[in-house]
Nucleic acid binder design. Structure first.
Lengths: 354, 354
DNA sequence: GTGAAAGCGCTAACAC
DNA sequence: GTGTTAGCGCTTTCAC
C-alpha cells in the first residue's frame, strides 16, 4: 500500500492541506475541533510527513551535522568521547524531530577544508557542531563559515573566539582537583601536560597552577612533565617522576589515558595506589572505571555540551542569528579509588612548607 | 549567492536539464563531448545536487539507517563496538554518496518495535543495518519487515535465519584459538561463557569444544564457568578457576571484558600472565591493547561486516531483491602478550593425557 | 543521444 | 481560522 500523503489526510479530515500542515507543524491559528479532526485522520492513515518534500519546500534540511576527528584512524580510539557527543546531539535532535548526520574525518587531510565545505553544501544541515581539534583550526572554521551555515564549536576549554562555542570550565575544575589533592595532605603534586596543540590541556595546566596558589603550595617546575595525551607518554612521564628521590605523592595527568600510563608505571615500580601515590586524570573515559584501582578523574560533560550546542542550532532555525560568545557547562569530579591521604612517612619526610 | 541548480548548469552548458541529470547520475547515453561540457559547467558553478529534491523525485532517500542498542545506556558502554560499526557503514556510504543515519535505542523499551517502525517510515532509508541484540528479537524483525524496507542483520554468530545477515565465523575461529593454546602446550584450558541470550557467545563455546576435540584434549565440565559478559563476572569466574587445586594453565573468555576481569583476578592472586597463566578474550575492544599485559584476542571484523551489509543494501537499490542466507566475514586472532608456553613445572605436574 | 513535460509531497505567501 | 496557488530542484516517462 502506498504511504498516505498530506492530501489523503486533508481529504479524510475534510480540510485543506494547509490546515493539515499547520497541525503537523504545531502552528497556531487552528481551531481545537479542526485540529482534533485532523489528528484523527493522521492516526487513522498512519500519516508521516515526507522528510524530503518538507526539506525541499522549506529550503532547509532538518539535520544537524556533527563533525569530529575520526577515532577509527587511531590505534587507541577515543570511542567513548565520540559516543558521548553523539548522545548529546541526538538528545536535542529527537526532541525537535531532527536527524543527526555524523561525519568523522581526518583533520590532517590536505583538503579537509574543501571536503567539509562540500559536505555541508551537499547535506545543507540546519547547523553544524564541530568538535576539537577541528574546531581549533582556522582554515576549517573559515571553510565552514563560508558556507553560511550556522555552526558551534564544541571545544572544551577553548573560549574567547568570536564564534559561538560551548565549552567547560577546565581551568576552574582543575584548580578544584588540585585543591582536593592538597586537602588530602599532598604537598608535592605533579602535573603531566598534554599535547601542546590541544587548548583544553593548557587550561588544565593553568588550573593546576591556580590550585597550588590557592592552597599556598609552591609551584615546582621539576614536578611538571610534558606528555602528548597518549598512554605511553603518561607511562614515561610517570616513570620519570617516580624515579626522583623526592618523588611526588600525587600525580595529576591532563587526561585519563596518561593517568592510566602513570598507574602502569607505579605498578611496575611496586608503588601502591592510593597507599603511596594518588593519581588523577581528566575526561572520564570508560577506561577510568575499569582500571585497578579505578581512577579519580574529571568528568567532562560532553553529552550535555553537545546537547546544548545542537539545541541552540535548532532553535536558531526560527531566530535571526546565533548569539556570540561562549556557553560554559561545568564539569564535575568523580571521586574513585586512586586517591587517598598522603602516606604518613612521606608526609613527615617531605615536611610541610610552612 | 544562491546555490547553483540543475537549471543553471544546463543553461551554462547549453543542454537540457535531463542531460545534466544523466551526467550527474553517471547514466549511459551521453556523448563524451557533451559529458565534458556539462562537467565543466558543474565545476565552474560548484554545482551540488540538492539531496532533498533528488530524494523526493526518486522516491527514495539515499540513506542507510544503522540501528543498535544504545551504548550510553550502560555504565561500561561498548563504545568501540559501535564506532567500528559506524565506520564500516560510513565506508560504504561514502563510496555511493549515501548518508548514514544512526539510531541508538533501548531494546528493552516496551514499544521499541513501534518506535523503530515510526523511524523507518519517517526517514525512509534505502536500507537498514540492524545490530545484535536487536537483530535477535522477533518482534523487532517483524516490525521492520512490515515497513517493506530491506534490512540486514549484523549478527556475529547468528546465522541461519531466512533473512539476510552478515556474520563472522565465531565457531571456527574459537576452535582455532583453542588449538593455538593447545599448541603452546596447554592441556587444561578453561572457558568462561558469556550471557546466554547472546547467540554469538554460544557459538564461541561450541568452537572451544570443537577445538579441544580436534586436539584430542578431554572436555572437562569443571573448567567451564558461566559469566554474563561483564568485567565483574569475568573476575569472579577467574577467581573460582584459579582457586582450584588443579587450576587451568590457560583461560579462554568469551569476550574481552571478562578476560580483563580474569587478568585482574590473576594479578590479585599474584599469578603471572603469561608466565603461569595464559589468558585470551574475544572482540578486540580497545581495552585489549591497553591492559597489562596486552590481551591476545579474536578480532571481530565488525567494520568490514558493516561495510558489506551497507554495500549490499545500496546495491539493492538497483536490483530486484536481496539474496537470502548469510555472508561470513572471517575473524582473525590478534596474538599479543597474555599468552605463552605452558609453565614447565605445572606442565610436568598435570601430565600429558596420552 | 537528447529534450519537454509532468509530477514527487510538502511549505510559503497571500487571499479570503 | 482556513484555503488557494505557486513553486522547491530534482527524476521519470516518453517523445523525437
Amino acid at each position: 500500500m502506498p504511504r498516505a500523503t498530506i492530501d489523503d489526510v486533508a481529504a479524510l479530515a475534510g480540510v485543506s492541506i494547509k490546515t493539515v500542515s499547520r497541525v503537523v507543524n504545531q502552528e497556531p491559528n487552528v481551531r481545537d475541533a479542526t485540529r482534533a479532526k485532523v489528528e484523527r485522520a493522521i492516526a487513522e492513515l498512519h500519516y508521516r510527513p515526507n522528510l524530503s518534500a518538507r526539506n525541499l519546500a522549506s529550503q532547509r534540511a532538518r539535520v544537524i551535522a556533527l563533525i569530529y576527528d575520526d577515532p577509527s584512524a587511531y590505534a587507541n580510539p577515543s570511542a567513548y568521547y565520540v559516543i558521548r557527543m553523539q548522545t548529546g546531539v541526538l538528545q536535542a535532535c529527537r526532541k525537535a524531530d531532527y536527524r543527526l548526520v555524523i561525519y568523522p574525518c581526518n583533520y590532517q587531510n590536505e583538503d579537509i577544508a574543501e571536503e567539509l565545505r562540500g559536505l555541508i553544501e551537499h547535506v545543507r544541515p540546519q547547523g553544524v557542531v564541530l568538535a576539537a581539534p577541528l574546531s581549533n583550526m582556522p582554515h576549517i572554521l573559515r571553510a565552514i563559515a563560508d558556507t553560511g551555515t550556522p555552526f558551534i564549536q564544541l571545544s572544551p576549554g577553548t573560549p574567547g573566539s568570536e564564534q559561538f562555542s560551548v565549552s567547560t570550565n577546565d581551568r576552574e575544575i582543575s584548580a578544584e582537583m588540585t585543591r582536593y589533592l592538597a586537602s588530602l595532605g599532598h604537598h608535592r603534586i605533579a602535573f603531566i601536560k598534554g599535547h601542546p596543540s590541544h587548548k583544553a590541556v593548557n587550561n588544565r595546566f593553568a588550573g593546576y597552577v591556580d590550585g597550588l596558589e590557592q592552597c599556598h603550595l609552591p609551584f615546582d617546575r621539576g614536578l611538571v612533565e610534558q606528555g602528548d595525551n597518549s598512554f605511553e607518554s603518561g607511562e614515561a612521564a610517570g616513570k620519570r617522576l617516580l624515579s626522583r628521590a623526592d618523588r611526588p605523592t600525587a600525580i595529576f595527568a591532563a587526561n585519563d589515558d596518561m593517568a592510566a600510563g602513570v598507574l602502569r608505571a607505579a605498578t611496575m615500580r611496586g608503588i601502591a595506589v592510593p597507599g603511596e601515590l594518588s593519581v588523577v586524570g581528566c575526561d572520564d573515559i570508560s577506561l577510568a572505571s575499569q582500571l585497578c584501582p579505578t581512577l579519580t578523574t574529571i568528568d567532562q560533560p560532553l553529552a550535555e555540551m553537545a546537547d546544548r550546542a545542537a539545541t541552540m542550532l535548532i532553535r536558531e532555525a526560527h531566530k535571526p542569528s546565533l548569539p556570540h560568545g561562549s556557553e560554559i557547562v561545568p564539569a564535575t569530579i568523580k571521586y574513585r579509588e586512586s586517591t587517598g591521604p598522603v602516606p604518613v612517612r612521606r608526609a613527615a619526610a617531605q615536611g610541610a612548607p610552612e
